[in-house]
């Protein structure tokens, strides 16, 4: 595996001047490509995507999943077992949608992991903090919930001066 170190002065983490503590993140020093490759294609990666598919019933970007999964594997020492437990609960309930089994996940580590996975997919970030790890911007699911009318900031919405149109209804949420 290729290993590299972020060069001084250019690391994204240094963009996050807001008191970002690097402690705990040293595992991820270096470009994404390097640290995700070890996780890519492993059984755990596949299991993580399976878990994600149960928790979020939308199209999930493979690349974003790789980033979130690789991070989760570092963050949760027992990721493997936890995934087994959550998947078992879903299977027990015969669930194909998150609503059918989420409440059955016991409070505590399992529930925390499950919700962290959901939050990571929707926000594209490891937390709401200024020093959070970013997994994806373009594929963060929050934007998908409103993409019929709201742009992902920094990506153009329409041709020049063509954006004024009737407001979209609040519901239903577009399929994504």
């Amino acid at each position: 595996m290729q290993t590299r170190h972020s060069s001084p002065g250019v690391s994204r983490r240094q963009l996050l001047i807001g008191g970002a503590s690097l402690l705990g993140y040293f595992t991820f020093a270096g470009p994404t490509f390097a640290w995700t490759q070890a996780f890519k294609g492993t059984p755990l990666h596949q299991r993580f995507m399976q878990l994600s598919g149960l928790l979020i019933n939308h199209h999930l970007d493979e690349g974003a999943g790789l980033r979130i999964g690789a991070f989760a594997a570092q963050k949760y020492a027992q990721l493997d077992q936890h995934i087994d437990s959550i998947v078992a609960i879903a299977e027990q309930q015969g669930a194909t949608e998150v609503e059918q089994f989420f409440d059955a996940i016991p409070e505590g580590e399992l529930r925390d992991l499950a919700y962290w996975v959901i939050a990571a997919w929707y926000s594209g970030s490891s937390s709401a903090d200024a020093d959070a790890e970013l997994f994806t911007y373009e594929h963060a699911l929050t934007f998908q919930t409103t993409l019929d009318i709201v742009p992902i900031p920094s990506f153009g919405l329409t041709g020049p001066n063509a954006w004024n149109r009737p407001p979209a209804p609040l519901l239903p949420v577009p399929r994504f």
Partner: peptide, 22 residues
Amino acid sequence: IVENFRNLPLGLKGSASSSYPP
């Protein structure tokens, strides 16, 4: 700068200065 912005975690996307590390 555009990529700096996109690389910020969502919680910092509202910051005007975080895309411009001094």
